[in-house]
Simulated assay, not measured.
Amino acid sequence: MIAKLQIQLNSALYLRDPQSSDLGQKIIQESIFLIDEMGFESFTFKKLSSKISSTEASIYRYFENKHRLLVYLISWYWSYVEYRINFETNNISDPKEKLKIAIRLISGKLKNDPNFPGVDEGALQQIVINESDKTYLTKNVDEINKEGVFTGYKSLCETIASFMKEINSQFPYPISLSSTCLEAAHQQIFFAQHLPRLSDVNKDGDIYEQNYQYLLTLIFNSLKQ
């Protein structure tokens, strides 16, 4: 199971690069299915080892604990989204169009990408919706931040903010607006699915399209465009 392309991630996220071996890629593939199916709280390396017909010890050679594995998966997702944004805006000069493409990619429903056959992007997106806050809402967030494990998320935030600054160089809060929208991109979907009174996104319609329209309104009104 060799991916045609690879997303380069900070080495602090793992003990051994899971993209470097068949077992590592199987760990990533099956952990996505299990976490999506049972939730992060119920997920264990013991259950994963049974799923991949291996041992817990073999998984610990790649990740020191399940939280670090979750951080890896979420980091892969955001780095992948940035890759898609860079690819799809490469030949576009209009910053408004670039920003609209970025908003579409952070808010829309992802389809599986044949360039990365070892990752189910749809299932991983649902993990981001349900579990991503757990990567940084932890007591030792300052410590793990120093290791650079959130570099991919920060880079994506800065990329989107750069489009905002192209549109309105005088706007004083591009990073804040960018990070707010990244959080809203999955939070509003979660609310629509589970806590509908907290969102105007209606699960009886296309929640991803509604989410996209909401973020368009929020961002461009803020930029006064």
Rank of each mutant, 00 (worst) to 15 (best):
D36M: 02
S31I: 04
K96I: 11
E121N: 00
N65G: 00
Y60F: 13
W76M: 02
L34Y: 00
R84I: 15
I59W: 05
D113W: 10
R104T: 07
K96H: 12
F43V: 05
K96Q: 09
A123E: 10
F43K: 07
Y83L: 14
K98G: 03
K98R: 15
K100H: 07
N112P: 01
E56T: 15
F116K: 06
E30H: 05
H67N: 14
F63I: 04
E56H: 04
S54K: 15
F45N: 02
L99K: 07
K109C: 08
I32Y: 06
Y60D: 01
E37D: 15
V81G: 00
Y80D: 02
K51M: 15
I28G: 02
I101A: 04
P95D: 04
K66W: 04
L105E: 01
K100F: 03
I35Q: 09
K109E: 14
P117S: 06
G122F: 09
L69V: 03
K96F: 11
Q29G: 01
K51W: 09
N91L: 14
F87V: 03
M38L: 12
K109A: 08
A102G: 15
D113P: 05
S49H: 10
S50R: 15
T89N: 12
E64Y: 07
H67S: 14
Y80A: 03
K111P: 01
W76R: 00
R68W: 12
E37T: 13
I85S: 09
K51F: 12
E64I: 14
I74D: 05
D36P: 01
G108H: 09
L34W: 04
S79Y: 04
K96D: 09
Y80E: 02
S42T: 01
Y80L: 02
I106M: 11
N115F: 13
G122V: 03
K51G: 03
K66T: 05
K66N: 10
N112W: 04
N86S: 14
M38W: 06
P95C: 09
D120G: 01
Y83T: 10
I32F: 09
P114F: 11
P114R: 10
S49Y: 11
M38T: 13
I52S: 08
K47W: 02
T44E: 03
I28M: 13
W78C: 00
D113K: 10
S75M: 07
E88F: 12
Q29Y: 12
G118H: 01
F40Q: 04
R104Q: 10
L99R: 01
L48K: 13
G39A: 07
S42Y: 06
I85L: 10
D36V: 00
D36Q: 12
L70R: 11
R68N: 13
G122T: 14
R68G: 02
V71E: 11
L69W: 09
I27G: 01
V119C: 04
N90M: 13
P114C: 02
Y62M: 01
K98L: 03
Y77N: 01
V71H: 08
L105K: 13
T89H: 10
N115C: 08
M38D: 08
N115L: 15
A123V: 00
L48F: 09
E82V: 03
I106V: 15
